[in-house]
Design a protein around this nucleic acid. Sequence first.
RNA 1: GGGAGUGUAGCGAAGUCUGGCUAAACGCGACGGACUGUAACUCCGUUCCUUCGGGUUCGUAGGUUCGAAUCCUACCGCUCCCA
Length: 416
Amino acid sequence: MNFIEDLKWRGALNQATDEAGLLEAMANGKVGAYVGVDPTADSLHLGHLIPFMVLKRFQNAGGKAVIIVGGATGSIGDPRPTTERQLLTPEQLAKNEKGITAQVTKLFGDNDTTIVNNNEWLGQLSLTDFLRDYGKLFSINVMLKKDVVASRLETGISFTEFTYQVLQGIDFHELWRREDVKLQIGGSDQWGNITSGIDLIHSLEGSSAKAFGLTIPLMTDSTGKKFGKSEGNAIWLDAKKTSPYTFYQFWLNQNDADVVKYLKYFTFLGIEEIDDLAREVQTNPGARLAQRRLAQEVTKFVHGSEAVDEAEKLSKALFSGDVAELSADQIADAFGGVPSFDIASDTVNIIDFLIAGEVEQSKRQAREDVKNGAITINGQKVTDAAVEIDPSAHYDGQFVLVRRGKKKYFLGKISK
RNA sequence: GGGAGUGUAGCGAAGUCUGGCUAAACGCGACGGACUGUAACUCCGUUCCUUCGGGUUCGUAGGUUCGAAUCCUACCGCUCCCA
């Protein structure tokens, strides 16, 4: 299968400008493809993984991966369909750029990868140069027709955000010129920005210049919800924000209706192996082999093999044994990935304890959960809100293991 | 600058005319429980805080009233129309 056929089979292709032309360009020598990320937060999340998976496949197909960390575009803000964005402070931007650059470096490695910050060229561009060199080539009439802009004409859009598509167009041209990037990859909402770039390249380099665009379908689960959230929270790629254990569990808990789709999309497994796993989902869904494989593969890609081992060790400890039987050493060894808090060794009321450990947000909620039997301390269910607990009663006086609900764990560390 | 709207709990959205029965309908989300495969679906409960007596809320600040999300005044934000 060629690059495009593979994407189609994986359900990763929404729209492409010229499939045949792209394949031809790829066949005629090493070319680059790029994905841009704006540093809106200090870490990437699962949503970012969507275009990156395609870029990685492009790299694996013999291309060069180029990633723009959008220091300049991030300071402007890609228009959302609903409301104007809040501008980030320069300090926040700098911090975000640093975090994201480090993560991207980890994901793509050194071979056939280039990471650049568009501040390099956009940051130097003077207003008059911008207007003379680029502004003349953009038609307001065309810009107004782009979906995002059109949807914002009712509610209002600032000149700043309106200009965003021009900046992204300049990015594509810049990479086309200096890195031999022929393809831009993005989510389906990026189509307008991508074609802006292609049009700009054609204006500046002639209509025969090779430049292509490719978008990815909006990723949703079988119930139509946007992919990548767990209990309303984003799943981050930063191990400090979302532990590898939680990351692993996110994938392990995917339902049968979605797992094959995600295997195709988020792993590098081949067609035979995925077909085998799909058959397992049909014949023996309870074993959840497909989910497990998915969790292993994606966790390995993002956090590495060791993190997979850790996550599986922890999962095993939490779900297949009696946690009360574990030794203090085993707890220390396995539970590194669980949210933890420090606690004094003095006896405290269960409700106050849960609040102190940030297991619960309010006493009201804490009482409710205790009453409903949702709270387990060191493997022992606690249903009386008046109970006093002694943090140093178990695990050699070092830890208190708290469970809320079926599978949310928290580890209290006794401070000496 | 002129005019018309609008601002309610995490989000959406009733309630405002006809003040008290409203800590505020309903939907979504979230949280907990049952079922199960650490699923999905479905079902049940909870969803401002609380020392469980009560306390503090409906853009903000005042006012009227025994009593205000509901009436009045000013201010702030957002939307649309006119100039």
